[in-house]
Simulated assay, not measured.
Amino acid sequence: MKKDAQIVVGISVGDLNGIGSEIILKTFEDNRILDFCTPVIFASAKTMNFFKSHFKSGINFHNINNINQLAHGKVNVFNCWNEPVKIEFGKEDVKIGTYAIKSLKAATNALKNGEVDVLLTAPINKFNIQSKEFKFPGHTDFLAQELKGESLMFMITDDLRVGLLTDHVPVKDVVNHITEALITKKINTIHDSLVKDFKISKPKIAVLGINPHTGDNGVIGKEDDEVLRPTIKKIKEKGKLVFGPYAADSFFGSNNFKNFDAIIATYHDQGLIPFKTLSFGQGVNYTAGLTKVRTSPDHGTAYEIAGKGQADESSFKEALFAAIQIHKNRIEYEQLTQNALKKQQK
């Protein structure tokens, strides 16, 4: 039976040849974490015991084949496969990619079925996970299909939140993706997330421009004037505190970002370069807008240091804390909403 207020965290192991296993072990070696969440690692006992031995970890795993065997106060390992797996740290291996997907799919199914409360994903290799059965550029796109809602890649820390209009899109295709419909959908998603997930009642949102200097009145592109500005104006007229577009080159350096609860960048690197520069190691990748909570660290597989015991678990640990807090905030928001409806009905 599940303890009251004990949040069950499902964890996908990511690329077994990367640093995922190390940051998972280092995070849960702090037993205090088990006082307020119950982790379930979706992998196999054999694989996790290999990592335990390699990294000389003191964790004693509780191995389960059914979620009903879950033990609170323990680090649970849900067996997704039984065969031995050859681990070669730092090697890009398509076969290893299949185990990353087995873990992800099992953890996602448990999330959909309510068997775990939140999902925490260790880094994957976007190349070696590709197959006939899995054709997604990353976690976000897969989860957008599996879970209801409007997904948004939302990079977060305590002081900085950056969402993306377009995420894993080639730069040459970015402008073609940015439409009034997309802008409206993404701003609505980020606004709702700030209210429900972060307890900000009237969030202020900044939007970065598409072109350098937001187009310089059409000299460097017309998209900011013809698409972005009119859409922001319409959204503001409906009562949301949305501002911009702002020239991206000076927005972060001038500390203007501190005046807003969130910033929306128009494409991947425009948002993630400043985010990771300002917060690397403490940032969290959160998939906002879905019916379930999923977080991830703000880094990749780090093959160059895999297996060496050098990986920093800080971002993974922050992703764990963020998932737990967002889950609690959502429950509180739902309770407040239900109470408000009951009062209206009286």
Rank of each mutant, 00 (worst) to 15 (best):
K2S: 04
A5H: 14
A5V: 06
G10R: 07
I11K: 00
S12C: 01
V13C: 08
V13A: 13
G14N: 11
L16M: 12
I19P: 09
G20Y: 14
E22H: 06
E22I: 14
I23R: 12
I24F: 04
T27P: 03
D30E: 15
D30H: 14
D30Y: 11
N31S: 09
R32A: 15
F36A: 02
F36E: 14
F42R: 13
S44A: 08
K46C: 07
M48S: 01
N49D: 15
F50C: 12
F51V: 04
I59K: 00
N60H: 03
I64A: 08
N66C: 08
I67P: 00
N68W: 05
Q69N: 05
N76V: 07
F78C: 03
E83C: 15
V85F: 13
K86D: 15
E88Q: 08
G90L: 11
D93H: 01
I96S: 06
I96Y: 00
S103L: 01
A106P: 10
L111A: 15
L120V: 00
A122W: 06
P123Q: 15
I124G: 04
K126M: 06
S131F: 04
K132C: 02
K135R: 15
G138H: 04
K148T: 06
G149Q: 03
E150K: 13
L152W: 05
L152S: 11
M153K: 02
M155H: 13
M155G: 14
T157D: 05
D158A: 13
D159Q: 10
R161Y: 08
L164I: 14
L165D: 04
T166A: 04
H168Q: 14
H168V: 15
V169D: 08
V174L: 01
A181Q: 12
L182V: 08
I187E: 11
I187Q: 12
T189W: 09
T189K: 08
I190H: 12
H191R: 06
L194Q: 03
L194C: 08
V195Q: 10
K196A: 02
D197V: 04
F198N: 03
K199Q: 13
K199M: 04
I200A: 01
S201E: 09
S201V: 03
I205C: 08
G209C: 04
I210Y: 14
I210K: 02
G215W: 02
G218I: 00
I220Y: 14
D225R: 05
V227I: 15
L228K: 12
L228E: 05
L228C: 11
R229C: 02
T231N: 12
I235N: 03
K238T: 15
G239R: 15
K240S: 11
Y246I: 08
A247Y: 10
A248C: 11
G253K: 13
N255R: 15
F257V: 07
I264G: 06
T266N: 08
H268P: 12
D269M: 02
G271L: 02
P274G: 05
P274E: 07
S279F: 05
F280R: 12
G281S: 01
V284N: 09
Y286I: 04
Y286S: 02
R294V: 09
S296G: 09
H299Y: 14
A302C: 05
I305R: 11
A306Q: 09
G307S: 13
G309K: 07
D312W: 06
E313D: 14
E313V: 11
S314F: 05
K317P: 03
A319V: 11
F321Q: 07
Q325M: 08
K328D: 06
R330T: 01
I331Y: 09
E332I: 05
L336H: 10
Q345T: 10
